[in-house]
Write a protein that binds this DNA or RNA. Structure first.
Lengths: 187, 187
DNA sequence: TCCGCCTTATACCGATCAGTATAAATGGGG
DNA sequence: CCCCATTTATACTGATCGGTATAAGGCGGA
């Protein structure tokens, strides 16, 4: 991966995350990444291709960092808590402008597009991770519970992006809620 | 409200909901609503103004229909259930493409815009409605619980828009989950 | 009939969109 | 020194963007 290519990906990630995919033109990405137009089109033959690369990169980054947090814990319920903490830290980031995959799904009408496939893949991965951890907690309906937990996380993500007033307390509330269910093993 | 004005609003609502706000041009809205361009700009001096009108209309429609469903029930917990059922029915709509207010917040970077204010106002209204109903259920942390419930609903909305595979079971699961907390009055 | 308003059609504006063409400048390795 | 790939700068394409200008129809009420 060449330096210039990374510069473009990083500039595009920032811009897409903040302003959305349609609102950002390639000229703006080129200007922000300090690269010539020909260099841009050498690495990314089209804007759609760039968006796909940005999302794949973002997907990998999230998986890596969440996996690190999860690996640090020993019990399955504290591993799930690590995911909540990952979201909490993310919300406090200066450049937080919501989930890039949710944003993509809200802008992209084409169900069959690769962009949608990557977004689905990301949410599917996280759902499965949570589901397996819940299974380790002996939760019978771990699949449905995982979807429930993911909905809570995505719902708070959307809320934080709208109100930007800090959902730290709500994150803690949600975690207590989930933890209690795990401990009671009622599902 | 003139007929033509309504035609424009309805065409715009369909298009924005499906394709997003930036992706849809005024020419397309004009074509779909079967109206002359001058008529369009007579009623809506700018695209942004149209978006605001669309969102205000949508906000009013949702408040009205949810209020009807809530008013039909007598106990506070069945009133909350009515809100879950409203979402469930909405998800099954043919023209379901996610929440227009979430979509707007994902596309609009301008925190101070009227578009964001309308979107926040909508979510605030629903949160307060749920909060008051939870208070009637004698839930102490009704405010935080209301945010929690709203996050679940928005999270499932986002999920349904991404996967389009029906979250009926997940809705029922979520409701059982919330109902149990209400009945146990643990908060 | 004629007034006044709503609506229509069409052409146009400058700006920006994604993407291409051409060619000069750069810089490290042999 | 030259080779060769990378990167650069600049100009350009046709299409579409949001929005405006001009002017002619349509039509109900007085």
């Amino acid at each position: 991966m060449k330096d210039k290519q990374v510069d473009i990906l990083e500039a595009a990630t920032k811009l897409f995350s903040r302003y959305g995919y349609h609102a950002v033109g390639v000229d703006r990405i080129i200007a922000d990444s300090g690269v010539a137009k020909m260099t841009f089109y050498k690495y990314f033959p089209s804007k759609e291709n760039l968006i796909e690369s940005v999302l794949e990169r973002r997907d990998k980054h999230i998986r890596d960092t969440i996996n690190i947090g999860v690996a640090k814990r020993r019990t399955p319920n504290t591993k799930i808590k690590a995911i909540f903490e990952w979201y909490e830290n993310w919300f406090e980031t200066k450049d937080f402008y919501g989930c890039m995959f949710i944003k993509a799904s809200e802008e992209s009408p084409d169900i069959a597009s690769k962009i949608m496939a990557i977004s689905k893949g990301h949410k599917l991965w996280l759902k499965d991770l949570i589901s397996h951890l819940l299974e380790d907690c002996s939760i019978k309906s771990h699949e449905q519970m995982a979807i429930h937990v993911l909905a809570i996380l995505d719902g708070l993500t959307v809320r934080e992006n709208l109100f930007k007033e800090g959902v730290k307390n709500e994150m803690k509330f949600a975690w207590r809620y989930v933890e209690e269910t795990i401990n009671r093993k009622i599902d």
